[in-house]
């Protein structure tokens, strides 16, 4: 099985190289381990600016691990180890010198479960603003909060209860609040780790619309289990299997003309 995966790596290598200025994240020869267990094998990839990149693949294939490398969230896991380079704006973010705090200000993240803080909606949004831009005046803060809530399509729904606990609104609304909260720190790249897996179809729709709308301003990377979702919103797709990228390319290519048997089986729901 492994040898097959390795030969199919060649599919990726034949792809044309994207010019540097259009690349948001460039990943070279990334290997990663949890303790002694290797979870990513020799991953190479270019993620393009102002497009939606979707990571698909069966669970436990390393999609989320790679995503969490982009904003150094894996630092919180003691046994995690990484080799290779991940470049954002031509700086390698995997080195010890790279400051995880400033990386995370550039790379926002939304998690699988909505994780709004147990505080008011207003405070949820105000907290990252005052922490990241200490010398900002009050009126400006209010303006940003309103702006970002509108960006996240949430303003009309919560404007009357902005001082109530954020845990009292629905899961879908909370997830959009988390997106608004992420947008307040003005990131360039947005990471989404299965943002809709805990939500109902209607909320999922709203978030997908939102993603398509905001890609004009940001670069979006989304991990999803849901092939249909990737089909609906992704511009580029990377298919992971057991820690390797088996196939990647534009969404049309991946979904219409899968090159490998593995991807074909995955798309038809057999893996």
């Amino acid at each position: 099985m492994i040898s097959k995966v390795q030969t199919e790596q060649a599919v990726f290598d034949r792809e044309p190289v994207i010019p540097e200025e259009k690349t948001a994240i460039s990943i070279r020869k990334v290997n990663a381990w949890y303790g002694n267990k290797q979870v990513l094998f020799d991953v190479n990839m270019q993620i393009k600016k102002h497009r939606i990149m979707a990571f698909i693949g069966p669970s436990g294939c390393g999609k989320t691990t790679l995503l969490r490398c982009f904003n150094r969230m894996n630092d919180t896991i003691r046994s995690f180890r990484l080799e290779g380079t991940i470049k954002i704006n031509d700086t390698d973010i995997t080195t010890k010198q790279a400051d995880p705090i400033s990386i995370r200000r550039k790379v926002g993240m939304v998690f699988q479960q909505p994780n709004s803080f147990p505080m008011s909606i207003h405070r949820n949004l105000k907290l990252p603003i005052t922490e990241n831009f200490p010398n900002i005046d009050k009126a400006k803060i209010e303006q940003i909060i309103k702006q970002k809530l509108q960006d996240a399509n949430l303003y009309d729904e919560v404007k009357d209860r902005i001082n109530r606990s954020a845990l009292k609104i629905s899961g879908g609304q909370q997830q959009r609040l988390c997106i608004a909260r992420m947008l307040t720190i003005e990131p360039e790249i947005l990471l989404f780790d299965e943002p809709c897996s805990a939500l109902d179809p209607l909320s999922t729709n709203k978030i997908e619309d939102l993603l398509v709308r905001i890609k004009e301003k940001y670069t979006v990377v989304i991990v999803t289990h849901n092939i249909e979702q990737a089909r609906r919103i992704a511009d580029d797709v990377a298919f992971f299997y057991e820690g390797r990228i088996v196939e990647s390319g534009t969404a049309e290519n991946i979904f219409l003309v899968p090159q490998t048997e593995l991807l074909e089986r995955y798309l038809s729901g057999k893996i």
Partner: peptide
């Protein structure tokens, strides 16, 4: 999850403790 959310927003570990963990 609260800690992760706060760290992902570019808030330092100590500020995460004082602003998010202790209030929670």
């Amino acid at each position: 999850e609260y800690r992760e959310a706060s760290l992902a927003l570019g808030i330092t570990k100590w500020r995460t403790i004082t602003l998010v963990v202790i209030p929670a």
